[in-house]
Simulated assay, not measured.
Amino acid sequence: MISQAIHRRGLLLSGAAALLVSSCARAANPKTLVVYKTPYCGCCKGWVAHMTRAGFTPTIHEVEDLAPVRARYGVPFKLSSCHTGVIGGYVIEGHVPADDVARLLREKPKALGLTAPGMPIGSPGMEVPDRPAERFDTLLLLDRSGRTQVFATHGA
């Protein structure tokens, strides 16, 4: 009788734990974006504001050196920019437009993530009054060796 009561109690507790885990999983925001940036970069703030306006929820981590972050996520120096984001298992390097990130999350290609190398004028966070946007590509970062393919083209 006592062992049956203990068994029922265990089943109830494991069932409650399963409900808690599933409700937490459903509550997790799929648009949560972790951003690594230096404390000195102003254009990074502009990109974060762009992502926020597009419905993403950024969490900012200020670091003195982005090289270890980029190495961790497989972004070669030649494809780097001034900040690194992580979302949905993908790395987002630089001033990548929010629409490109949303498309990446929707299509889920087999890749490390997206990069907009450098700091193209007119890209999100790099808007300059009285200067037209430069043409730039968002690149799909295929692997740690730096292989890419054009994901989207923006600007003039």
Rank of each mutant, 00 (worst) to 15 (best):
M1R: 10
I2K: 15
S3H: 07
Q4M: 11
A5I: 09
I6K: 13
I6S: 06
H7Q: 15
R8K: 09
R8E: 11
R9P: 03
R9V: 07
G10S: 12
L11F: 07
L12V: 04
L12M: 11
L12H: 09
S14I: 15
A17E: 05
A18R: 06
L20D: 03
S22N: 14
S22T: 15
S23H: 05
S23A: 09
S23E: 09
C24Q: 15
A27K: 09
A27W: 12
N29H: 15
N29W: 13
P30T: 08
P30G: 14
P30H: 03
P30E: 03
K31I: 06
K31Y: 14
K31F: 13
T32V: 11
V34S: 12
V34R: 11
K37H: 05
T38S: 07
T38V: 13
P39M: 11
P39N: 06
P39C: 05
Y40W: 13
Y40N: 10
Y40Q: 02
C41W: 00
C41V: 02
G42Q: 01
G42E: 04
C44T: 00
C44I: 08
C44P: 07
K45W: 00
G46A: 12
H50C: 06
H50G: 00
M51V: 14
F56N: 00
T57C: 11
P58G: 02
T59V: 15
E62V: 05
V63E: 06
L66N: 07
P68H: 09
R70C: 08
Y73K: 07
V75P: 11
C82M: 08
C82S: 00
C82L: 10
H83I: 12
T84V: 15
G85Y: 10
G85D: 14
G85V: 10
V86G: 04
V86F: 09
V86T: 02
I87P: 05
G88Y: 01
G89K: 10
G89E: 04
I92C: 08
E93P: 00
G94V: 06
G94E: 02
G94I: 07
A98G: 14
D99G: 15
V101F: 04
V101P: 10
A102H: 13
R103L: 14
L104A: 06
R106G: 08
E107N: 07
E107I: 06
E107H: 00
E107T: 06
L112G: 04
L112C: 05
L114N: 06
I121D: 10
I121G: 02
G122C: 09
G122V: 02
S123P: 15
S123C: 15
P124T: 10
P124F: 00
P124K: 13
P124G: 14
M126N: 01
V128E: 02
D130W: 01
P132L: 11
P132D: 07
A133F: 09
A133G: 08
E134W: 04
R135T: 12
F136S: 05
D137V: 14
D137A: 10
T138P: 06
T138I: 15
L140Y: 00
L141K: 02
D143N: 10
D143I: 06
R144H: 12
R144E: 11
R147F: 07
R147W: 01
T148H: 01
V150T: 06
V150A: 00
F151L: 04
F151I: 09
A152P: 09
T153N: 09
T153W: 01
G155A: 08
A156E: 14
A156S: 11
